[in-house]
Design a protein around this nucleic acid. Structure first.
Lengths: 220, 220
DNA sequence: AGGATGGCATAACACCGTTACCCCACGGAA
DNA sequence: TTCCGTGGGGTAACGGTGTTATGCCATCCT
């Protein structure tokens, strides 16, 4: 056996190539043959490793959820849970904007191309919400939000930010309403809708901006 | 020249067949050849009439926007603009649920299958929002919403309801959080987030339920 | 009546996902 | 060491896709 560090398995090679193809030219540039050309293998390799093209697409989606989860964990927990919640929202959009094509694979009505996520895949997506649920609990415990099912509150937050993100990715937001400034007001509205007092919500959302910038840079 | 009522043009025949195919088996069951088989014509007819498959898909999307616009006009204008707004939201979801596949074509991250809407198509989508903008203006005029750009308010409403609808269509909402009961709370949160007082918002949303049912039946 | 125009059918091209087949390189057993 | 079995991956094919070059034919205008 060689002592050299073993090179990545074909499975990993294919996965990396697929992610790169999707990032470059969007989901439609991913095909069994383009994958074969990019890796020097044959289209057959996709089927021995993933069963079908659908299989590798699902794997990409799962990786996307993992990445989102990892990013959301960077939000942290402070004594201002509403600001924490706002940071989560900012990270959600950040992930979508820096991963646009992968985000489309995760949440696009994917059956357009015949790709379809399974119930198990969606469960991964829902699990990502657990961090938001925990934050909603703290918002309620701090009497910032009106007492309600934290899962329900989390869904409201998710939907608000998700809707903004999807419309921005779909180019439905035109100047002067860019997604950036839009999220700013959206976050405040969401907090107020959940029960927070307007001025306090504004202050927390403003505070979350600095926290986000310090972690992810001023690029966004 | 025959005095018989002339039969529909090939263009209309193709459009009807395309809508039927999408409604039956989803966007992926629409192809140049399936269209040819359904109409008795050849695939070539699609290209003389629409230029490409993309062209006929765009036409379907435009028809979808027209249908949505027609439905939204049924909301009406009463002296409770917040209830009017809630009715608009209910109709939006109604349209999506009774037209799921067409809705996916309109708003799905369509480039998955190579289908892409043009800037002009999206403009039709944004135009549909004008009815919501008008309603937001009345909400502000009635001092129910905090004074703000009505277009901005309308976007918040749109995003909230759109997000709910997309997640429901994508099967991301699992029991006990069905889209139906979800919209109910979502509407109230949106109104409160826009500035309405919580109890008044609840009352208006509740009132909108009856108005919606009387127009669209208890099926939803 | 004749000619020009244009819409549609035919058939092909290049691509797609998928699969049957086969080869060969590897692992374990004798 | 030799043999065999196993399985991963290459080759090539099948049926599907969007698209297009060609040609026919009906229609309309002159």
């Amino acid at each position: 056996m060689s002592l050299r560090r073993q090179e990545p398995s074909n499975r990993v090679t294919l996965l990396n190539a697929a992610a790169r193809l999707i990032a470059m030219g969007g989901p439609q540039s991913l095909s069994a043959r383009s994958l074969a050309a990019a890796t020097g293998m044959s289209p057959m390799a996709v089927y021995t490793n993933f069963g079908s093209m659908n299989g590798i697409v699902r794997e990409i989606a799962r990786d996307g959820f993992k990445r989102l989860e990892r990013l959301l964990m960077l939000a942290g927990q402070t004594d201002d849970p509403v600001a924490d919640m706002a940071v989560l929202g900012r990270i959600y959009r950040y992930n979508a904007m820096t991963n646009g094509h992968a985000f489309e694979v995760m949440f696009g009505s994917s059956n357009l191309a015949g790709f379809a996520l399974t119930e198990e895949d969606r469960q991964h997506g829902r699990y990502t919400l657990s961090m938001v649920v925990e934050c909603a609990q703290r918002c309620v415990a701090a009497s910032r939000f009106t007492p309600d099912d934290p899962v329900l509150i989390a869904h409201h937050m998710w939907i608000g930010v998700h809707g903004t993100t999807m419309l921005e990715l779909g180019r439905y937001l035109v100047p002067p309403y860019d997604g950036n400034g839009f999220l700013e007001q959206q976050l405040t509205s969401l907090m107020v809708g959940a029960g927070d007092e307007r001025d306090r919500a504004k202050a927390s959302v403003a505070a979350s901006h600095g926290r986000f910038i310090s972690n992810f840079g001023p690029a966004m």
